[in-house]
Amino acid sequence: MPYLDINNVVKRYEGHTALDGVSMQVEQGCIYGLLGPNGAGKSTLIRIINRIIAADAGSVTLNGKEMTDDDIAHIGYLPEERGLYKKMKVGDHIVYLGRLKGMTKADAVASMHWWLDRFDLKEWENKKVENLSKGMQQKVQFIGTVIHRPPLLIFDEPFSGFDPVNAEQLKTEILALRDQGSTILFSTHNMASVEEVCQQITLLNHAKVVLTGSVDEVKQHHKKNIIAVQTADTIEPNPELFTILPPDPAKRQGTLIKLDPGVNVRDAISWLNEHYRLTGFTEVLPSMNEIFIETVKSQKTVENNE
């Protein structure tokens, strides 16, 4: 049974449909990527899960039960557009957010101290938020999201605004939370981070799910039968087996060959082995970025043809 089960959710606004029958299953303890171009409906879906807005149809179940308002205590949400009360003290602010999620004052204070310590922000506890650097504010924001140790965490573009060092720290924290059993829903454009941390993804486009599955499955499914071959001599194209692609200067992985339809990898490699001094080969899988762009673009052409 999936931990978070989104079933046929529909949301309409005047003039347009933001979500058109979206379904998605998130297993407990996984990091799930919710992808899609701007305006695809990601934020709407996340707001529905957070019960900020209501769906027009469909259901959202958490741990097997239809979600109610009380369940928002079990969610930690870091919105894409985020901010803090500038005039509040760092400690008070974190405690306030924790208590809004239903923590007792004592628990919230203890947890606040633990997290400030972890992020080296201890001496800032009694400073006003506005005196913090942007990076520190982002950390405070993150603490405010996780202070109540929610079993479900939702991050909308969590790395935007972080410098590489802080982004790395954040990633470590997110993975640590996953290891402690939290389920993490991750909405992003940053495909590199998807490949690094996500196990499962769903790609939304124009209010619909266009792609879903584990990162490996999706990659296998989208592979283009391209092999990077390293040889001691130069490969000539073989019209019966493969064509040679222009080299990818960024990757320096040898000669890229694209197998003709119906040719399997073994035949191609054994043929190459016979005719050239083969030193190595790897199957090239598409990056998530390529899959993302390809899927979204192909949808556009389909629409244009309709």
Partner: peptide, 14 residues
């Protein structure tokens, strides 16, 4: 303007 509001309404009703 602070953008805090979305964080707050994810914890309580608007």
């Amino acid at each position: 303007t602070n953008r805090i509001v979305e964080v707050v309404v994810s914890s309580c009703r608007p």
